[in-house]
Amino acid sequence: MVGAHPRAVVVSSRDEVLARLRAARDAGGATAPEVPREYRRTGTAPPGSPEVVDRLTETLTDYKATVHRVADEDDVSATIADILESAGVTTFVAPPGLPARWLGEVTARVRPDEPPLSVAKLDAVDAVVTGAAVAIADTGTFVLDALAPDQGRRAISLVPDHHVCVVRAADVVSSVPEGVARLDPTHPLTFVSGPSATSDIELDRVEGVHGPRRLDVVLVGPSSAPE
C-alpha cells in the first residue's frame, strides 16, 4: 500500500491511515447503497397532545423518575416548592435563565450559576432546578441543552444529587426521530432517562450511582383523562 513510493520519505500517520483506508475501501467496494428509511419518523400522536404527555408520564415513572402533573405554568412554583421542601432541600442551583415565576413560592435558598459556581460549591448544594429542550414519550427521556438559558451548563445538572426538571407539554414529542430533529447538535446535549442507574451487577437495573439519584419531573400541560 503505502511506503513503497520511491520518493516517500516520512509519511504522516494521517496520510498513511487515509491511504490505507482508501485502498481498502476501493478493494472492498466503493458503491454507497441507498439507505432504506421505512421506519416511522413521526410518532403515534402529535407533539404536545394529551396522549404523548400521558405516555411520557408512564415511561418516566417506569424508570423511577417521580412525575408531577400540573395544568398550567402558574402551578409550577407551588409544585417545585413542595418537592424541595419534602426532600429537605435548603439550597439549590438554578441556571441564569430559569423563569423567575417557577420559583415564586419556593422558600429554599437559590444559588444562581452566575458567575459559574465552582465544582465544590455545586457539590455543596442539595438540588438543581432546570427546564428541558425536548422530551421523548416513547423512551421516557428529556434532553438538556447546555446553551439554553433555562437549562445551563452540563455540570450544574450533574453534580447535585437531586434534579427537578420542568417539561412543558409543547416540548413533548412521541418518538426519538422527532426529538432528535428538534435539537441542535452543535450544542452540548444530555439525554436523561431516569435517575442514574447501573446494569453492571448481574445485568439488572439498579438506580443511584454517580449522577443525581433523585429525579422529579414537573410536567406542565393537560392530561387526556380528568384526574
Binding site: T59, A146, L147, T186, P188, F191, S193, S196
Partner: peptide, 17 residues
C-alpha cells in the same frame, strides 16, 4: 427503552465542559 444518560458534544464550547 433508553439508557439513563447519553452525552453529545461538538469540539469545545466556551463556558461548558
Amino acid at each position: 427503552r433508553m439508557n439513563p444518560y447519553t452525552s453529545t458534544w461538538s469540539g469545545v464550547t466556551p463556558g461548558d465542559g
